[in-house]
Design a protein around this nucleic acid. Structure first.
Lengths: 239, 239
DNA sequence: CGATAGGTTGAGTCGCATCAACCGGGGTGG
DNA sequence: CCACCCCGGTTGATGCGACTCAACCTATCG
């Protein structure tokens, strides 16, 4: 059930059979959430690390007047901060986009995992580092890119991340976020997301019907986005 | 010379006298940089962790057409990713704002520090976590806040961070970033930064003469910014 | 079959960008 | 020592990208 988590962590470190068993033994406490539910709320004391096993989720913050910013998307295999329990309280919410299955791993279990397996510890460090890289790339997109560039970039990123865990076939993948979700992630209004999607469709770069995304011309999409996948560190990390 | 780094890390974990000595023993290889120089370039293989001992620096990315986004500011005591050497190449540059003094700690030294001292290891984890929190807050600002709100937020954040290492006296601190730097950090044009600064000055919220910043009405500034310092986790982390 | 969530489209507006001129101060070289 | 330059900052005029408001369309579901 947690094989996508393993798949992700194995990009970061060579795991022995025992490492894998150890991890799987600690992935219990499975929970299910409906779509558009909260896995954790702003202000909560973080007692677990959430491993996303199935479905899409996101990190978000709300401003007083209702403005929402989605800070990151989580897809299967992702962890919500390997060591978040070191902090006293969460300063953001975790919400589901689709129905989601998570494993909640306790502080004690995480510490035990890292103590037992240096490979897992390294994998968790790398997960943190690469999440930070993604966050930086979002910072650049929000600060300096136009709507079209930002959106193209997001789709390129999602395609790469989903491929890395085997959830994209060729140029196609499930993209369950609504236009309102995309707006809150891209710092746009949902109206403008609709128009920008039309532009990308019109230019023959993407197709998006229902929740099914196809990158019809990924090369051109990357050019629009100024997308350079090196920040995702997808190749040759394992040493 | 590295006492600000200690000061920062001691917020994250209780360090024994030996931890402190161990750390200081590894803070050698001091280097100086001029203002507006590069400590590291995009694409470099990261072999060192930079500890900022004096001066301001920043992380930034350039787009093909010259647009620049500053991703984070570094002030004395900050580390540029405690474990960055796990990655094959940097996907951003590190630049100085003012003249800067850094200690470059090698991969081997960092690993030795963490192996020897669980307290230091924990402090490094927390440093990563809190840097991530700051990055998320920037994401929210860039995605959903207006120019005035963003700028107010940045000044509130900098005040808190500088206070935490003793580099602010009351409401005053050195703010050496130029308006162009601020623009690239806030995702604005330098012209608009100038106007927005005037607005904040006009409202009696701040004073900024040369490089000297005074928060004349921090309470009101926080309200404008919707600034809630809890994301910085400044209190009661040490356990 | 009505209700509702998600998406599309048009019209008008606004926040911020761009372009351009200008100012002041500190450093430099003739 | 003064003239000049250059960098950082200010201010005005104009333009554009994205927002807001609003109507409407479509698919899904109880």
């Amino acid at each position: 059930v947690a094989h996508l988590v393993l798949r992700k962590l194995e990009r970061f470190a060579t795991l022995s059979e025992e490492d894998r068993r150890t991890l799987l033994a600690h992935v219990r406490h499975i929970q299910h959430f409906n779509a558009r539910d909260d896995l954790a709320k702003d202000g909560d004391h973080p007692r677990y690390v959430n491993f996303i096993l199935e479905g899409w989720a996101c990190r978000y913050k709300l401003l007083e007047d209702g403005r929402r910013q989605i800070i990151s998307f989580f897809v299967p295999g992702d962890l919500c901060d390997p060591i978040v329990f070191l902090l006293r309280e969460m300063s953001h919410g975790l919400g589901s986009i689709t129905p989601v299955t998570v494993a909640r791993v306790s502080r004690e279990d995480m510490l035990a995992l890292m103590a037992k397996s240096p490979a897992l510890e390294k994998a968790f460090w790398l997960d943190m580092l690469i999440s930070a890289e993604i966050q930086r790339e979002w910072t650049v997109a929000l600060g300096r890119k136009t709507a079209r560039e930002r959106m193209a970039h997001l789709f390129c990123e999602l395609a790469m991340r989903l491929r890395a865990i085997g959830l994209a076939e060729g140029q196609e993948f499930e993209m369950p976020a609504t236009q309102t979700d995309l707006a809150d992630a891209l710092g746009l209004s949902s109206v403008h997301v609709s128009r920008t999607l039309q532009e990308l469709r019109g230019a023959g770069l993407i197709e998006l019907k229902g929740k099914r995304m196809t990158l019809n011309n990924e090369k051109a999409l990357r050019e629009v986005a100024m997308f350079d996948p090196s920040y995702l560190h997808l190749s040759n990390i394992v040493t």
